[in-house]
């Protein structure tokens, strides 16, 4: 790899993605910035509709257009801005440098092609190899994800859900991608199979030194796989930090209730505490903090200003006015300047 370990491998800068529909503009991703190191696993956590999947599709330049449109921002992978690439260049990148595992293994495989052919197809698309060489490599990949190579000629319907997800993983890793995006990779699987699949993913990630962007709402999966965590709400990253920072030193008023609302096996509670209210309508976001309407620790100034992400120590970013320093800087500038929305 070109870059050394200290350089940022993936940088997303001020990404804005909108869906322009007949009923107005849906602001799916609002000005998010993210950085990932080589070999790191970053988890995106949040409720449905928070913009997690849209962010992932944005990285791959797979936003359905129309209605989707990347309004602004940069996505820099290995020093190159992916948003400046042509369609053909992106096609070469997808599947070789960046791969994606989708949520539902039942629908992401071609039902009328054998699993082996589906793996070797990716290999032949991105590498100049002969048919038989691709076949050998595909067999190797099958073995790596724990499926006997004899099953090369089997069709997807002959596999169980967990096995199909393994095939999807084999396809995604066939060309040794540098970045693997996983959109709820195990939500459709039973726990014992989930444990097997996560274990396989961990091993392969170490073997190929792949960076992983993990989209999930299962905090257990996050805790077991991730180095860093980004919590998304209404298209924004409201809290970002290392696993320990976000889980043990939770700062944003959204993150704590989000954790509390999920049933958790390691907790003993009699009653869950759901977050009151609903996520704001993304086609009509408030100008102030987007969590204002549901926040339990809001103050008057929260209705006026849209806070900027702010470092509370060691790279732990929180997008909330209530972190002391941010408030101080607000008080210094209040009245003199309109809160600006960075574009």
């Amino acid at each position: 790899m070109k870059n050394n370990d200290t350089a940022k491998f993936l940088q997303i800068k001020n990404l804005i993605i909108h869906y322009e529909t007949g009923n107005g503009v849906v602001e799916a991703v609002n000005n998010i910035s993210l950085e990932m190191n080589c070999g790191e696993t970053l988890s995106l956590v949040g409720e449905t509709g928070a913009g997690k999947t849209t962010t992932a599709l944005g990285i791959l330049n797979l936003i359905p257009n129309p209605p989707g449109r990347i309004i602004a921002g940069e996505i820099v992978l290995d020093g190159e801005d992916l948003l400046k690439k042509s369609t053909q260049q992106m096609q070469r990148i997808r599947g070789s440098k960046i791969s994606m595992i989708f949520q539902d293994p039942m629908t992401s495989l071609n039902p009328i092609e054998t699993v082996g052919e589906q793996i070797s197809e990716v290999i032949r698309l991105h590498n100049k190899v002969s048919r038989s060489e691709a076949e050998t490599r595909a067999c190797n990949m099958l073995e790596k994800v724990g499926i006997p190579a004899e099953r090369y000629m089997d069709f997807p319907h002959q596999f169980s859900g967990g096995m199909k997800q393994r095939v999807v993983i084999a396809i995604a890793l066939a060309c040794g991608p540098e970045l693997l995006i996983c959109d709820e990779p195990t939500s459709a699987l039973d726990v014992t199979i989930q444990a097997q699949v996560l274990d396989t993913m961990r091993q392969l990630k170490d073997e190929f030194r792949t960076s992983m962007l993990m989209i999930t709402h299962d905090l257990g999966v996050v805790a077991e796989t991730s180095d860093n965590v980004a919590v998304m709400y209404a298209g924004e990253i409201v809290e970002y930090g290392t696993l320990r920072q976000v889980f043990k030193d939770t700062r944003h008023p959204y993150t704590r209730p989000l954790f509390d609302s999920l049933p958790d096996i390691s907790k003993n509670v009699n009653r869950l505490s759901p977050i009151k209210g609903l996520t704001p309508d993304p086609s009509n976001l408030p100008a102030c903090c987007s969590f204002y309407s549901r926040c339990t620790s809001r103050e008057d100034q929260c209705a006026q200003i849209d806070p900027q992400p702010h470092d509370v120590g060691d790279g732990h970013l929180v997008k909330c006015l209530l972190s002391a320093e941010e408030r101080r800087s607000y008080e210094r500038t209040s009245g003199s300047k309109e809160p600006q929305k960075v574009l």
């Binding site: 257990g220 999966v221 805790a223 077991e224 320990r244 889980f247 043990k248 096996i265 390691s266």
Partner: peptide, 8 residues
């Protein structure tokens, strides 16, 4: 034991 734990 297969359930992922959120307690890190």
């Amino acid at each position: 034991s297969a359930i992922p734990h959120s307690d890190i």
